[in-house]
Simulated assay, not measured.
Amino acid sequence: MQTDQRFDPYRAFNFVVDIDNIAVASFSEVAGLTAEGDPVEYREGADAENHVRKLPGLRKYTNLTFKRGYTRDDTLWRWYTNIANGQNDRRSITITLLDEAHAPVMRWYAFGAFINKIEGPSFNATGNEVAIENMEVVHEKLTLELAG
């Protein structure tokens, strides 16, 4: 076994988000990159063993959540307004993890995405925090691709 090479894990703070291949915002946090399925239980009366079999069922994907500091950019609110007004404004989202040299190492793709919830900041006159906007996005499919 070769021991002279070291592979450190990537840092979670180097990432870029693109919505329909246009960098619309810089986000401070992205969460929800989760894919899972519901197992289907099945058993035949002639099965020799006394337990159910587990078969793969439908896949489902957790909603993505995004956080960013407020700026004068209202692109996300306009996208949400389109959805709220009944437009079918689905988009593709790419989340790219970068290495220490800011080169892409892997990408998550969310397809058929739209904003389901958008939340303005909480204000506190005695605080010193940045005004944060929260966005929750639903999507139909999530894939992972290694870059390079």
Rank of each mutant, 00 (worst) to 15 (best):
H51Y: 12
F123I: 12
A125H: 10
A101G: 08
V24I: 13
N63M: 07
G57F: 02
D73F: 00
S26T: 15
L64W: 01
G45I: 08
L146Q: 13
G120A: 02
R43Q: 15
V30D: 03
A46N: 15
V24M: 14
G86M: 03
S26D: 12
R6F: 15
N85E: 12
T65Y: 01
D89C: 06
F27W: 10
T65R: 08
P56C: 04
G32S: 05
Y10I: 08
M1H: 13
T71H: 04
G86F: 06
V40S: 00
K117Y: 07
T143L: 03
D47W: 02
A84F: 03
A125F: 10
R59I: 09
T81Y: 08
I132L: 06
E133A: 03
G45D: 05
H139N: 01
N50G: 05
N124W: 08
H139D: 01
E129N: 14
R68M: 05
I19E: 04
N116L: 06
F114S: 08
V16H: 04
V30I: 11
E140T: 10
V24S: 06
K141L: 09
L97N: 05
M135V: 13
V105T: 07
A25R: 09
N88L: 11
R43F: 03
N82R: 13
D74G: 10
E129Q: 14
L97Q: 11
D38E: 15
I132F: 00
T96D: 01
G32W: 02
G37Y: 15
N134A: 12
R91S: 01
P39M: 09
S92L: 09
N85L: 03
T62L: 02
I132Q: 01
L98A: 00
H139C: 00
M106P: 05
W79H: 05
D8T: 13
N85D: 12
T3A: 12
D47T: 06
F123Y: 13
K60E: 09
A84S: 13
K117E: 07
R6L: 12
R90M: 08
T75R: 08
T62I: 02
I115F: 00
S26P: 01
A113P: 03
A31R: 13
H102E: 11
D99P: 02
K60S: 14
H139V: 05
A103S: 14
L142T: 02
N85R: 12
A103G: 07
H51W: 09
R11S: 11
T34N: 10
F13G: 07
G148Y: 08
M106F: 15
Y10N: 11
D99R: 00
Y109D: 10
V138L: 04
M1A: 11
Y109C: 07
T81I: 06
T3N: 15
N82T: 06
E140M: 03
L142F: 00
K60R: 15
Y109A: 11
P39H: 05
T3Q: 15
V130Y: 00
T71N: 10
R68V: 04
M106W: 08
D74Q: 12
W108H: 04
T94V: 08
G148F: 10
R11I: 11
L33G: 04
E133Q: 02
A48R: 12
G86T: 04
R43P: 07
N82W: 02
D18C: 07
D18K: 15
D4A: 10
E133L: 06
I22Y: 07
T94E: 12
T143Y: 07
E100Q: 13
G148E: 14
N14Q: 11
N88V: 13
F123N: 07
T126W: 05
A101S: 13
M1P: 11
Q2A: 14
